[in-house]
Structures are given as C-alpha cells and as structure tokens.
Design a protein around this nucleic acid. Structure first.
Length: 347
DNA sequence: AAAGCGGGGGG
DNA sequence: CCCCCAGCTTT
C-alpha cells in the first residue's frame, strides 16, 4: 500500500510528536486564536505572521473586541501584511458572530465555511485544530505532499486535484487527533517535503509510502499551471509637504489596496515641467519640486514603476488629508509600496 | 475555470 | 530574476 492512505497517519503523528515548530497559536489553541492565525497565514509565511499575530492578540483579544474595533484600528494592525480583504472579512465575520452565535465561533464545518473570508482550507483548519472535528485542511503544503505521495502529475492548481485531495484525506482522518494530523502534514510540507525541487526525502517519516520517491519523481513534482505575465504601470508618486504636514489620499473601497491610505500619484512618468503644469491645473500652489530616487513595487499581477517627487505647497490642497509624520506612522495604514518614499520624511 | 488580490524570503 | 507561501472571492 502506498500513496495517500491510512498507513501515513501513525508515522506522521509520531514524527509530529517527536518535534515541531513552536508556534504561538499552537501552544494555546483557543478558537479565536486559531481562526485569526489561519486568516493571517493565507498565502503568507509563518515567519511573517508571528509579529502581526502577537500585536493583534494584544490589541484585540477576543471576538467582541474585534467586532467593536474601528476600521482604522484593525486596518493599521494589518498594515504591510497584504491581501487586505482578509482583515475586512475578519471584522465582518466578528460582527456576524456576535449577532448570530453569541460572540463565539461555531464548532461546525459548514457554519465556519459560511463565514466571510473562510474557505475550505480555513474551515477545515479551525474545525480540526480548535474543535477536534475530523475534517481535512488542504493547503499548498498538503497538495504538494499528496502529489508526491501519489506520483500524480495533475497540476495541483487544478480545482479537481484540490477536491480529490480533500476527499482522499477526509477518508483517513483519525477521530482522536485530526488537528494534529493536519498540522503534521503542513509541518512536513514546510520543513521536509519542500517545494522547488528540493524535497529532503532522507528526513521523511513516510518515504517508504511515497510513490513519487519510489519512482524518482519527488523532485520534479508537483506540477503547476503556468502563471500569467504581469503588466507594468508607470506612476509619478508625490511626497506632498505643507509646513510640517504630509498630504495623503485614501484609496477606493474596492480593488487593489482597497481603503488604505496612499501618497498621491499621477498616471505615467511626468517630467518636472509636465508635473508642475498638472499640479497648477489642479489648483495646487507649488513652492518647490525635488526629484526622489525611483522605486519599483511588484504585486502578484502588476508592477508599479514609480518616479518620486517631493512637493512643497504654500497652502493645503483640498483633495488631500494632511497629517503629521507621527500620525502617519501611528494611525494611517499605508501599503509597503510607498515605504521608500515615506523614509524621506524621517530626515 | 480564470482573474484579482500583497508582500517578502530565498534560490 | 523567479518561486511560492497554513487561499478566498468574484466574474
């Protein structure tokens, strides 16, 4: 017997018991902590989450506290973590939980799945880790482990592969330790069954059950669908000063970096003359313009190639919100894309 | 099924 | 440079 089968369960649990990473949401797996950690961990590395998780729990220790928090507060706590719809959904779900479930998470896979921001993976993770329910939690790690175990060349990005993998693991979940089995699979993927052709099969507790290893294919699996090319957007980004204040703009409620604050910017790379003309046209009283070092920021599907310009105004521009550098640092959520330009304010 | 949605660490 | 990360939602 080999591949994804019940034979992997005991070796994985024993291996997990023998040692695993010490993660803050593991040592104290209250449902709220597990839920928040799993949302933060979506498409995000464990090491990036640690600091955010600690600060979040300190500021918003339970579901009612999150439900009652201002948008500016929870958005600021998420600043720099990315995929900001996650934090909006987290808050929406907290409000909903207070209204419908007395401020607690339901111990039920389908009710968890119905929460905003909670998909198949997260519902399975919370159900199994926080509530001990025997449901699988199939993330990118588990998909890779499954493809290698079964020597399966189906692209793991295919929906059918994900569905099949969930079903295969659902059939072998142990009733006593489902959360630990799910975490052992993810731990294996994160520390041993590594991506990019670098599996450490010599350290694997289920090597003897791995069809991919047996066939010599562990390093070439899994397959993935080809990814699309990014488009490039040229922008002229402004560090606007008026006295000691800096001018900010809030992004639209939908789309990229929705609702976050940003440095104002114009489409394209404008020359100093073009920029001065454009700003005058907008009614801004420009006192001084200084070019800053250009910067590039890469998102998943678009690249911003940014020319920075320091702009001094005689009077505040009505379209902007003017704040002190300290207020910007402490209370306004600004995406990482603008970091290099904001550092100009620290002189 | 495909596209949109962040940011960073490591090869 | 490219890869991929404890994915979800919308179209």
């Amino acid at each position: 017997m080999s591949g994804v089968s019940k034979a992997i369960v005991q070796p994985l649990l024993s291996w997990y018991d023998a040692g695993h990473r010490d993660l803050p949401w593991r040592s104290e797996p209250a449902p709220y902590r597990v839920w928040v950690s799993e949302i933060m961990l979506q498409q995000t590395r464990v090491e990036a989450v640690r600091g955010y998780f600690s600060r979040w729990m300190n500021a918003l220790p339970d579901i009612p506290a999150l439900a009652a928090a201002d948008e500016a507060v929870y958005t600021k706590l998420w600043e720099g973590l990315g995929y900001y719809s996650r934090v909006r959904n987290l808050h929406r779900a907290a409000v909903l939980l207070c209204e419908e479930y007395g401020g607690e998470l339901p111990a039920d896979y389908d009710r968890l799945l119905a929460l905003p921001g909670v998909g198949e993976y997260t519902a399975g993770a919370v159900a199994s880790i926080a509530f001990g329910l025997p449901v699988p939690a199939v993330d990118g790690n588990v998909l890779r482990v499954a493809a290698r175990l079964d020597n399966d060349f189906t692209p793991i990005t295919d929906a059918k592969f994900k569905k099949q993998t969930r079903e295969r693991f659902a059939a072998l979940m142990p009733s006593d330790r489902p959360g630990d089995l799910n975490q052992s699979l993810m731990e294996l993927g994160a520390t041993v069954c590594l991506p990019n052709g670098a599996p450490r099969c010599g350290d694997c507790p289920i090597q003897h059950l791995c069809e991919g290893f047996h066939r010599g294919n562990a390093a070439v699996l899994p397959l993935r669908a080809a990814k699309k090319a990014r488009r490039v957007e040229n922008r002229t980004v402004l560090v606007v000063r008026c006295g000691q204040l800096v001018g900010l703009r809030q992004r639209p409620k939908k789309g990229l970096l929705a609702g976050l604050w940003e440095l104002p910017s114009l489409d394209g790379h404008l020359s100093p003359d073009e920029l001065r003309a454009a700003l005058t046209e907008m009614g801004w009283s420009v006192r001084k313009l200084l070019s800053l070092r250009p910067a590039k920021h890469i998102f998943t599907h678009v690249e911003w190639h940014m020319n920075g310009v320091y702009v001094e105004l005689d009077a505040p521009a009505p379209a902007l919100t003017f704040v002190t550098p300290a207020e910007l640092r402490d209370a306004y959520a600004l995406p990482s894309a603008f970091r290099s330009f904001v550092s100009v304010l620290e002189d």
